[in-house]
Nucleic acid binder design. Structure first.
Lengths: 218, 218
DNA sequence: CCCTTACAGTCAGGTTGTCGTCAGTCGACT
DNA sequence: AGTCGACTGACGACAACCTGACTGTAAGGG
């Protein structure tokens, strides 16, 4: 669910990071230069950033500043070969949140990313109205919470990810049933029904059917 | 003015930290043992914590769990002489936010604290009445004390650290069994049961199961 | 030294929630 | 009216979880 933005020019390290993030169950946007990162992170806004300091077209700290200027407030973990004290200080003063010098263990990247994520994802206390809360594994409506099973959670998550737009049936199936499981066509209907039934007591009828296409949330 | 909570038993380092914090323009609560820290930080709630791992009366990670269980959500910077990868991972899995190994430059402490302070949020609900005491390795509810074994303590500590949110099974296993020990899947269930059984006589039924995901404390 | 006690981790058996499916019905569009 | 897609309620299978008991190990006391 959380989206990690990576900017690293060294191909070997880039692929290691990509695989590690996937193994952690995180989605990622991986880029190889500052210019590419600026464009990519503006479209899909990551929850946490992993930035190399030594990029071909810019200093990673400048990239950090540029991203912050663009309104992206995600925490930043700097990766670098330089371990001088002044380098570290410069990294933090550019708005970094953590700093790791090469060579490092991928396991340490993992736990430090988790620590950063812990602080950001829970920093969405109230957007009023109805919120899908991954920490509680539930849908929260004005302090009332509706527990969801894992499958219901994935399905509703995909639906709410594109509010007001129609999500096709096969897209929903792919999201709710990863690892390409084969499920009967009717299974999706069943789960939509189950979710609707849980929402009904709260006076919510937010899932509407678009016949022949899919469902939509609003 | 932000308040920094320090717990460090080595007098020399303690005074260095105290002076450095004052020079940074921060107020501080400085303690030398886990027991003292628990009392002091409950009265004046710090915005950031600096904890030594090797304390005389408890492990710093247990202190961190206990503070979190008490509803103190401030970010934690661990200080320690141990720089093994597993030690670092154990620190983060106990709920730490950063980890610095001795010897370190005071300037690095400074920038890392600043980074943590930048992201602090207030609003910490109190977990009325029930407290985890790392010095006694016990749960205290209105002057009634329930003894916990070390494993039970770590497990319950991790659970109470994120009140109302679901903690995944593998996260609990990682917190309760550091050093990457492999434990049977069912062992976690057993320990949850033991803790529930100890809480039951006090009228507490605060651990609920979220099937397929983990457990939660409320 | 043996005995006791406490803790850790595992096991087998029972219980229950979740999953995916089916058969039948409803309702919209042709 | 007929057809097709979605809705509905119920069901069996299975995995997740609960529960009580058991074994191994280490520390402390007589």
């Amino acid at each position: 669910m959380p989206l990690i933005g990576v900017c690293e020019d060294e191909p070997a390290l880039r692929s290691v990071l990509t695989r590690a993030l996937r193994a952690m169950g995180h989605d990622s946007v991986v880029t190889a230069s500052a210019g590419e990162a600026l464009r990519a992170f503006a479209r899909r806004r990551p929850d946490v950033l992993v930035l190399d300091i030594g990029l071909p077209d810019a200093d990673g700290r400048d990239l950090c500043l540029a991203l912050r200027a663009a309104g992206l407030d995600a925490p930043v973990l700097f990766l670098t070969a330089r371990d001088g004290l002044h380098d570290k200080i410069a990294g933090f003063e550019a708005g970094g949140d953590d700093y790791l010098t090469k060579p490092f263990e991928i396991a340490e990247v993992r736990v430090r990313l988790d620590a950063l994520l812990r602080r950001t994802t829970q920093a969405t206390p109230d957007s009023g109205g109805v919120v899908l809360d991954p920490a509680r594994h539930a849908l929260v409506v004005d302090d009332i919470e509706v527990g969801l099973t894992p499958t219901e959670f994935r399905l509703l998550g995909r639906l709410m990810a594109d509010p007001a737009s129609v999500v096709r049936r096969h897209t929903l199936v792919a999201a709710a049933w990863p690892h390409g499981a084969m499920v009967s066509d009717n299974t999706l209907d069943s789960y939509v029904r189950r979710i609707r039934k849980k929402l009904e007591p709260l006076g919510l009828a937010e899932i509407s059917t678009v016949r022949g296409v899919g469902y939509r949330w609003r």
